[in-house]
Design a protein around this nucleic acid. Structure first.
Lengths: 200, 200, 200, 200
DNA sequence: GACTAACCGAGACGGTACGTCTGGTCTTTAC
DNA sequence: GTAAAGACCAGACGTACCGTCTCGGTTAGTC
């Protein structure tokens, strides 16, 4: 029963207010950073009542998430040029851009907030993450069909090995990889999943 | 000149208060979660003046970081049984335990806060992360000496491939791997770094 | 443009909160004394946010002053039985009661605070003191019209001679006069002002 | 058993510290006003430990009282030129000077504090006020002997009528009298006490 | 001349209250 | 009946002083 907590009538909702709120959220997030972003400031900047925000979203995280979801549709999708390694590097570069710089990135702010807000975490996973994973798997299966990737490659492991390094570096503040490092990481990861590991 | 910002005289510092504060921080963090942890509550629980906390730490994040650092010394160090894969799994299990459950884990709270606090991020990296990386590299070099690992394996890539999956799953809320999945991940990762990838 | 510093909109003010705050202030003042009265305690006792107090009053003194003003309207007014001496004694007794005991009297606490808070002193004079002086002068002019008092008596001097002794005794802790002493003081004071002093 | 609470040995007391403390108290009081005067600031300004202050005085009020007592000895004593009215005006002018301006006067600060500190009030009365009253009565008795004042004049009433106006004006913030007003007040007061009032 | 008691400076400590800030709810008024 | 405006309760923030308490270092007075 998703969408349940909306008691007010969504049909009478002001689309103008919604747009103003989402836009203000992203803009302010870029200006002062997610941490210093407040519902108060969003309301003031969007010339909207705080009540209006709380009527439609449970928290500032939810606002930013919807804003991000809106702008991110069809962003960071996997290209398909026939060269899997290059395509993955391209897509990963897009993801890195989304997360840089961490202190001004709405996505990073959202990730941080979701770490102690289970409801937001769930929304983040279902609305933002899952679709990208699906898109990733689709591209990988294409690669298998094209013979670029072993047919028995474990796509779950692939996901972890390919995307892990970026988030590992993000949360431990080890610096994002440059293009060469990124390519090296992707190549090593692909090599790791190309066939089942030898068991002793 | 690290440690400089301490204007008060560290020699006259009350060790009892320090212990009470760090202990209370960890306990309350486990009880209510890092997000709902407050300096006020730490002070009350430790029977300590708020001033005493602010005298020695700049923020609640710094308190939790020091608490974590204290308790984590010699925790999560890399064992050496001669079986690299097993040892890595053992150590990774320890790390996973530290991060579970996310909403009650002090480490996860700290990670979240560091994402929008550059000073804290630096402290986190230097005091918590760097020593573990050094320990990891030491174990890996041992493995190379033992012939368990290719002598030319890139240890930076190894770090990303081995630890990446855990943090990837943490921040995108994909669930931590169980023992079998963990072993599979480690095996694939090790396979990925065992030799330079074939370039086409 | 008096009352200017109120930036919030006074029309939307909650009268219930105002009453609760003023009532709590007086009650707590009587219980613990003005010196130990805190804004924090007023807020807690009135079940009101501290912010609400600071929104409408600049200090605890201002709160107590308004509370006193509210309750004191039409209290300590000058009776008119046709016997000036008796009427003055009656009114002075009322004033003495307001100031007794000094350590529990809101009025005395206010007087003490106003001695080092110029803004409060001005409020005290204009809102509390001036109206009583006006009332006093009215009664005295009535006495002049009735022939009880010399028509050329200096009412400013009268004010000082009649009320001075009470405040003199209050601030130097010489004890308040009993009824007989009070009558004696009033009689001497009236005698002093009944005609211009002989100049040598 | 006065002087009892001094457990430390007064013989070993540092006179230099005592002087520094009393001097700093008066100076800071003049600079920032009694209300903003703190024990902390006195200690810092006198280059003295807070402990040393609390060892010898129970409160900041006691410090200021002693400082005042020290400097006020032989100040504000009653002159005797043979002209009672003039002498009283002279002495009253001295008192007024001590109380002006109220917000910077140590004496006024002390008066304010004593209004909610009974112990301080008692000290104030016994060490500062009583000696002045004795001195006043001595001068008045001299005037009676000289025939300047009726032999049966009530000196208690005289005290109230002569000093009352000043403290009345002080605490109700009505402004201090100028020389002419002061003389007028004194003349009226003296007239009031010159003989018992006519009773109807 | 060494001993020893205690006063001294310095300042960390447990506390209390301050006045400010933000979060999320509730009320009022205009459209 | 929805929305803007904004007052409200709640409570954490970081600061200022309070009065108490150790610390060494110094300075008497005693042996």
């Amino acid at each position: 029963m998703p969408g349940m907590p909306e008691s007010p009538n969504p049909q009478r909702r002001s689309e103008a207010s919604r747009q103003a709120i989402l836009g203000s959220a992203l803009q302010l997030c870029a200006e002062v950073g997610y941490g210093r972003l407040t519902v108060e400031a969003i309301a003031a900047h969007a010339a909207v009542s705080k009540k209006t925000i709380y009527r439609w979203w449970p928290s500032k995280g939810a606002v930013v998430l919807e804003a991000l979801d809106d702008t991110m549709t069809a962003v960071a999708d996997h290209p398909n040029t026939g060269d899997l390694t290059a395509d993955l590097c391209t897509q990963l570069s897009g993801v890195i851009e989304l997360l840089t710089p961490p202190s001004r990135s709405a996505a990073v702010g959202l990730i941080a907030e979701a770490l102690h807000d289970d409801a937001l975490a769930q929304e983040l996973r279902e609305r933002i993450v899952r679709p990208r994973i699906a898109n990733f798997e689709q591209r990988m299966r294409q690669a298998q069909a094209d013979g670029e990737l072993a047919a028995d490659a474990d796509l779950d492991v692939a996901l972890d090995l390919i995307y892990g390094p970026i988030f590992h570096r993000l949360v431990l503040h080890l610096g994002m990889p440059d293009a060469a490092q990124l390519r090296s990481l992707v190549e090593h990861a692909l090599r790791g999943i190309s066939s089942p590991p030898a068991t002793h």
